[in-house]
């Protein structure tokens, strides 16, 4: 497997962690109460920690003197390979939790397989991440239930988020060319095979949460090819601001 394919494969996982971590970071200090604020910041910290491990490995693989920060901050929008789901804005707490839940369930299934990767570094990062992401999934599942089966208002708000965000979940299971090469080489995970378990898990939680999966046949995709939603440019403007304004400096 060529290094470039492997790098692209890792971006497909790591960029999700970076972008979701960035979205959660926006909320620090603005949560509905202190305990939730602290918990969401914890998840941001875990995701950004995972991002660093992946990017440090990519930097090593590319061997051209690039650093984790060059990778995080100095690519153009089309080069980020995160799914559309994770870049969706923090419209309200219902969106934050639903986005998190939809991603966490996938993320945990992915890492459980990825820990068997024959690339030792990737396997080690995945293994370490499982413990963190299990907690994320517990947190977001619990909140889906609280919001879904809480008050009438909370039910309506979280169902609204589900209706809006469900259309981004299909993309999670799309296989890119780099994914296919990574699977052939025993490095990557065939995400298409995770769908059944994913839907099962969502159903279980939704049942308790008294929420409904929308009956739509229309889904959105593009993030994995670097074709993002309009939200992404603004997110990157914040993320990249310092590195773009003050190039080639140490911080």
């Amino acid at each position: 497997m060529k290094n470039e394919n492997k790098i692209q494969y890792i971006y497909g996982i790591a960029d999700n962690a970076l972008i979701l971590g960035q979205r959660l970071s926006e909320l620090c200090g603005h949560g509905p109460n202190l305990e939730t604020d602290i918990a969401m910041t914890n998840m941001a910290l875990d995701l950004l920690g995972q991002t660093r491990s992946y990017y440090q490995y990519v930097a090593q693989l590319s061997g051209d003197g690039k650093t984790e920060d060059d990778i995080a901050f100095l690519r153009i929008e089309r080069q980020y390979k995160n799914v559309l789901l994770v870049e969706q804005p923090n419209k309200h707490f219902g969106y934050v939790i639903t986005r998190q839940f939809f991603y966490d369930v996938f993320h945990l299934l992915l890492l459980e397989e990825l820990q068997n990767s024959n690339d030792e570094t990737v396997a080690a990062i995945a293994k370490k991440g499982i413990k963190e992401v299990s907690y994320h999934q517990r947190f977001s599942s619990d909140w889906m239930k609280r919001l879904g089966d809480g008050t009438e208002e909370s039910h309506q708000k979280v169902q609204e988020a589900v209706d809006d965000l469900w259309r981004y979940t299909d993309e999670l299971f799309h296989m890119t060319d780099d994914d296919k090469i990574a699977v052939e080489n025993g490095i990557g995970v065939n995400v298409a095979t995770l769908r059944e378990k994913y839907e099962q898990r969502i159903k279980e939680v939704f049942e308790e949460a008294t929420l409904t999966i929308p009956e739509t046949k229309w889904f959105q995709k593009g993030g994995k090819q670097g074709i993002h939603s309009e939200h992404m440019g603004y997110l990157l403007s914040d993320l990249q601001y310092m590195q773009r304004t003050y190039p080639n400096m140490k911080w």
């Binding site: 200090g29 603005h30 949560g31 509905p32 109460n33 939730t36 309200h92 707490f93 239930k145 609280r146 919001l147 089966d149 809480g150 008050t151 208002e153 909370s154 708000k157």
Partner: peptide
Amino acid sequence: AWEKGKWVRDAAMAY
């Protein structure tokens, strides 16, 4: 943050 969080805290209590 406090006002926008009210429905969330209410939901947690109700649940």
